[in-house]
């Protein structure tokens, strides 16, 4: 799954999802891969406003990447290509193939296996 996906995942347990601890899920034991994609500045300009930047910084740091700016960049038609490339590489080209993602509230571990996050809870947890 793309690193960006982590920004859209939270604990499946309803009593957790409203708490601050449940997001972002804490990523550990991650295996990463790079899957090249064509850079589409328009897509980045559209998606960045919808990204929770603080959560993204937490996730990228958990993966050992400190390359993103501290403040959410405001992308325009004139935005610097270096910045666009860096965002593109981190958000869209970085694939998490295996990982454990833990809810900071209930401690449930959601595994990522072969690039697919498993957000299912067991029957007792629902």
């Amino acid at each position: 799954m793309k690193l960006l996906t982590v920004n859209f995942l939270t604990c499946s347990n309803k009593s957790c999802s409203s708490t601050a601890e449940a997001f972002p899920l804490k990523i550990e034991d991650a295996k990463l891969a790079i899957q090249q994609m064509e850079l589409k500045p328009e897509f980045l300009r559209n998606i960045i406003p919808r990204v929770d930047w603080n959560a993204l910084l937490i996730s990228t740091r958990q993966l050992g990447n400190n390359s993103l700016p501290e403040e959410k960049p405001e992308l325009t038609e004139e935005s610097d290509e270096v910045l666009l490339k860096s965002l593109h590489n981190v958000l869209l080209e970085t694939e998490i193939t295996e990982a454990k993602m833990t809810c900071g509230n209930c401690g449930h571990i959601y595994p990522v296996f072969e690039g697919i996050p498993n957000m299912l809870l067991s029957e007792e947890e629902i």
């Binding site: 960006l4 996906t5 328009e42 869209l92």
Partner: peptide
């Protein structure tokens, strides 16, 4: 098709997705 993305998650309905 070269723009936009498709994201997959194994879940019940849309549980665990912040959408």
């Amino acid at each position: 098709d070269k723009s936009g993305i498709l994201l997959t998650a194994q879940t019940y309905f849309l549980q665990g997705l912040r959408i």
